[in-house]
């Protein structure tokens, strides 16, 4: 069951590059690992460490206070590319519970809510302003109120009601589907069997 998301307060790390792909977030060679926990070490691995394993000091997540970031401020199309959910698990394991960006890769976006990561979509200008305002300040992301707060500034955001509910409650999607739609699924299958019987042979 995903960890519920209600309200968090913490450091926000700005990484405002556009088109950060999931290969960069979680390089493919670590997909051979079968664990779901402990992947934070591989988050942005090739930006965070040299091939020798040595830390690359000027990468944002290697610099205090961003080493404890709970929020990531990102550029356009964050999480584009591959469908690997490890990208979400690595972010969560590092401690990031919320990513704010002007847009997201679609599969990454869909994966977020299912693993308890809040993806907030805001216009590029608003993300840039947040990045400026958050220097030296903690940021609060409040899901019930749908606002991001830094000092005196309060930025509202939109989220689909279904995703909000699921995040707030840490719902398991399968439980919800089976509880609410078991009969509907059966009816669908009976109907489809008439139209496309070859799918049932």
């Amino acid at each position: 069951m995903p960890q519920p998301f209600v309200r968090i307060t913490g450091v926000a790390a700005p990484l405002l590059e556009d088109h950060i792909d999931t290969d960069l977030i979680f390089p493919a060679r670590y997909l051979l690992l079968m664990e779901r926990n402990g992947l934070g070490d591989y988050l942005f691995r090739d930006r965070r460490r040299k091939a020798t394993g040595e830390q690359i000091e000027d990468f944002i997540l290697n610099r205090p206070p961003y080493t404890t970031a709970k929020i990531l401020l990102a550029g356009d199309n964050f999480g584009c590319g591959s469908s690997r959910e490890q990208a979400v698990w690595a972010l969560s394991d590092f401690g990031i519970r919320c990513v704010v960006a002007p847009s997201f890769g679609e599969i990454f976006h869909a994966n977020c809510a299912r693993s308890g990561l809040l993806a907030v979509q805001l216009p590029a200008e608003a993300v840039r302003r947040l990045a400026e305002d958050c220097a030296g300040h903690e940021v609060t992301v409040d899901l019930p109120e749908q606002v991001i707060q830094v000092g005196a500034s309060v930025v509202p955001f939109q989220i689909k009601p279904g995703i909000k509910e699921a995040l707030l409650n840490g719902w398991d999607e399968i439980d919800v589907l089976l509880a609410k739609h078991a009969a509907g699924i059966e009816t669908f299958e009976q109907r489809q069997r008439q139209v496309q019987p070859w799918l049932y042979e």
Binding site: S83, E85, V88, F108, A110, R114, E173, I174, L177
Partner: peptide, 11 residues
């Protein structure tokens, strides 16, 4: 994603 794969398997 992987969570959705489980959803498809089950439902």
């Amino acid at each position: 994603g992987a969570s959705e794969c489980a959803t498809v398997l089950a439902t």
